Amino acid sequence: MKTFRVALLVTALIGVAQTAQAQTALPADRSKAPLVKITDKALPFTVSLPKGWVGLDLKDGVAGVTIASQAQPPAALMRLLFIPKNGQAVNLQSEFTKFEGAIKEGGAKVTFKGEKAANYGGVSGLIRLYTITNSPGTAKANDLTMRVWFGNGAKNFYSFQLTVDSASFARMDTLFDKVLASVAF
């Protein structure tokens, strides 16, 4: 699945790079933003996203939605991405292995924290949780936490991600749960 590997490599590296500058915890109010339903014919899903978050175009060629809690770091990053499968089979475990490798190739240390099955909008998938340290010797306060759901839809492979400084993860994860619960395919 070379197509998925290349897309995930770019996604992994850009996602980590965009949040790597996080130096302090995010303001509490960003995690309590009300959700606003987004319907876009270019997306194979509808979703409700946090009001007031900033849309980003990371110019990585991957289709979907990328938003940040604010325009400048420190910022939480949410990505809801999809890649057409074009009839190809997708093995989620294998895709996660490639994803982790792509992050490591970018110079970051990835620590796997756990995995569980999860379904959103009727699509089955897996969630993994990671701690990412951008370089050896980085202070613990600069660690990032990344939660990634890979979904195996009938026509598309999905990668929904939250990346945030570890100190802010618990409250941003609650918001991400609400976003994921709003997804409909």
Results as ranks from 00 to 15, higher is better:
K41G: 10
L77K: 01
A25L: 12
A102I: 00
L43C: 05
A63F: 10
G122N: 08
E115I: 01
Q23R: 14
R171F: 03
A102S: 13
S159W: 01
I38K: 13
K140A: 14
M1Y: 05
G114V: 06
G15Y: 00
L35C: 07
A170S: 13
T39C: 10
G137I: 06
D173I: 01
S69N: 10
T66N: 13
T19I: 00
T3A: 13
G107M: 01
P50V: 00
V183E: 08
V6Q: 13
G106N: 06
A141M: 13
A42R: 14
F4G: 02
L162Q: 01
A20D: 04
V179K: 04
G87H: 11
A167G: 10
G15L: 03
L126S: 09
L92N: 09
F150P: 01
D60G: 15
T66W: 04
I132T: 02
T131M: 02
P44Y: 01
A117C: 07
L126Q: 14
F45M: 10
V62T: 15
K2V: 06
D40E: 13
D177F: 11
N119A: 15
V164F: 04
S135H: 14
L13M: 12
V183A: 07
G64Q: 09
L43Y: 12
G153D: 03
K85R: 13
N86G: 14
Q21F: 11
A42V: 03
D143W: 00
G137L: 13
Q18C: 02
Y158H: 05
D29R: 08
V110A: 11
K140W: 05
A139N: 10
K41P: 09
D40G: 11
A167Q: 11
G61S: 09
M172A: 05
A75W: 00
F150T: 06
Q21L: 11
A139P: 09
V54Y: 11
D165N: 14
L49F: 06
V148I: 12
T111F: 04
S31E: 04
V65D: 07
V90L: 09
G153V: 03
A170G: 03
L180K: 00
N152L: 05
D143L: 07
W149M: 08
T11E: 13
A89R: 15
L175W: 02
L80Y: 08
L92H: 04
N91L: 02
K98F: 04
V62Q: 10
G55C: 03
Q21P: 02
I14Q: 15
K98D: 14
K2D: 11
R30M: 11
